[in-house]
Nucleic acid binder design. Sequence first.
DNA 1: TGTACATCAGTGAACGCGCGTTCACTGATGTAC
DNA 2: TGTACATCAGTGAACGCGCGTTCACTGATGTAC
Lengths: 214, 214
Amino acid sequence: MSALGESPVLPARRGYHHGHLREALIGATKTLLAEKGPQGFTLADAARLAGVSPAAPYRHFADRGALLLAVAREGFAAFAKRLEASGREAASPIDAFREMGRAYLAFAREEPGLYAAMFSARLPDAAPLAEGEAAFSVLVGAILNLLTRMGAVTGDPRDLALQIWSLSHGIATLSASGRLGDDCADAEDVLASGVEALVAASLARNAKIEPRGL
Amino acid sequence: MSALGESPVLPARRGYHHGHLREALIGATKTLLAEKGPQGFTLADAARLAGVSPAAPYRHFADRGALLLAVAREGFAAFAKRLEASGREAASPIDAFREMGRAYLAFAREEPGLYAAMFSARLPDAAPLAEGEAAFSVLVGAILNLLTRMGAVTGDPRDLALQIWSLSHGIATLSASGRLGDDCADAEDVLASGVEALVAASLARNAKIEPRGL
DNA sequence: TGTACATCAGTGAACGCGCGTTCACTGATGTAC
DNA sequence: TGTACATCAGTGAACGCGCGTTCACTGATGTAC
């Protein structure tokens, strides 16, 4: 409520030098992605929101794409952390896995712009994003854990992980584009029963055991 | 090879009036989406490619969004047709279903820009696209057919259809963004075995019968 | 069959806009002596 | 502790660009008489 309203989102800058401009720009970009979707992001807007001239970002990022890449990296890191934390207090590995599914959809629903940016077409350097791989391996780890607890002796859960990730991603994106109805409980149920089926089939296929207790 | 190269993509226009500008613009848009991805589309480019002034499209479309909407409609119609045709010569309903999966991924792979445009965030009027619903019901119909042939007495295959569509869509989009490796046979296998698992679980769940012969 | 005229489907120039990026600059910071 | 100076992180004005859209217009089409 002061005379010259500084952006309320970020801490006031300390004089001429911003101090944390790099972080502020990434934060501003996240905000813009949340407000306007993945299409709505512009460098100029991000600079404006960070309270800085349009040329300032070039001190910290080579170009627009580099900023977007940094945001995608941070997005994946936060995503992985959230997935990892999701099932920590669950009673059983199955519950934990269900919680992870819920966390996946929740992240995509709460941060649709960020989620879309993370997964949007090939990023600048065409190399796969290390942070994306890390998030995927959180999933793989949880699956591996689940399978061994259920007595499967199989080694590589990669195919199962791809199926589960694809299903989750498909539900998240179809849901975001309004093609799944707006009831998010529905989406969670579709995911949960789908995952159950995929896991059961994997158990049956790989370990030649009757999937029970699932 | 004539002196003044008319666009090779479209038939030469007949004098002052184009004759089929509406269709030509839709075709040009598809071409641009294929070349530059969903981001690359501009009205001006489409007009240019159709060999017409930038104002001409406004005779046929209210604005940029309306053209894109028309393209999405046509895309879904072609998509539905292709899905429908895919399994027509298959030996069994299961083969037919597998073919449909292949057709799904093939469409997404061959027309990535169009596919992305079709599914990209909420379109102008927010109402679900009728053509999109129609494509979905092709899938539902095939599932219903498959389930009844396998002896399931259940009525509503909607949840199963949502799972299968989500899985297909997830694989298609992850694959398009390079996160699934570039081997499309892999994608097809992941889809096929995933669908198998989902169908088997649905049979087991709904009809209380042992899924056999799958 | 010929002509007048309403309607239609384009033209082309222009608009305002906001973008990404560059440039020479200047104020702030921190280090060496 | 004080001062000189190199380095750093911003400024602000400007650039060229291409976009979506509007406008008054004109050439082509087709219908009524």
